[in-house]
Amino acid sequence: MAQAQTWRAWLLTDTPTSRRHAKLSALYQGWLSFRGNTMAMVGLWILILLGVIALAAPLLAPHDPFAQELGNRLQPLWSEGHVLGTDSLGRDILSRLIYGSRITLYIVGLVALIAPITGLLVGTVAGYVGGWTDQILMRITDIFLAFPRLVLALAFVAALGAGIENAVLAISLTAWPPYARIARAETLTIRSSDYISAIQLQGAGALRIITKHIWPLCISSLIVRVTLDMAGIILAAAGLGFLGLGAQPPSPEWGAMISEGRRFILDHWWVATVPGMAIFTVSLAFNLLGDGLRDVLDPKDGNK
């Protein structure tokens, strides 16, 4: 107990003694204020659970997600050996959901890397450099923004061919413009601040100022925005899957599962509903997490 007390004091100090100490202390303070937000913690736990499920899928899944058993098709919930029933080919829905979490996380992870980073690059360069560069980059952004997201993604997938990788690419291509707009707006306010003038007076170049001084301040609001957008990304991926342009059968992607279940929705509602519930839960978890992160990270909230 005494040991824990001193660790806590060490982490909460206002007088850090080394670089590592200062970093850890700042992280711990952030964690404390995040932990105070119950809903955000719920979201975080759901996502940790999802991560564990995806990692341990072969251990958790009661059946092979691809094993067909045509004599045992469209079993209801809680039936013998199949807790969440079976689909039209007699595959265990629970196992497919568990394996599907891998695909969902894969898509979400990739999009969450590609889209914000592209947006950050475009937005900060446009905002900091200004002039013609700004005009050109922002007009390109506007062009992408002008199309409805799913329609644009559909066009890309149609051009590139169906498949998970192309779905990821298509979703990323449609998701980056809002990030570019946010990053540019933040850069414009940061650019005119005294601390940027101060580093300019040390002879720092544009590259250093953008990467070392502007990015750290933009990233927090982008992270918040990404977690809030996650739900949309999952739904877009599911939408593409549903239209048959994302993950291809027999892969157990949640959207594709709904698409398959659609044919039986009136008589065998659970086939489409169960993956729908999974998408709903994960989207909600990301939203809750994003709300909590906004309280911790958003520099505009001066709750110090």
């Binding site: 200062a22 601390y195 001084h213």
Partner: peptide, 8 residues
């Protein structure tokens, strides 16, 4: 305003 808020 003259010190970067995230820099020690």
């Amino acid at each position: 305003a003259s010190l970067h808020p995230r820099h020690s």
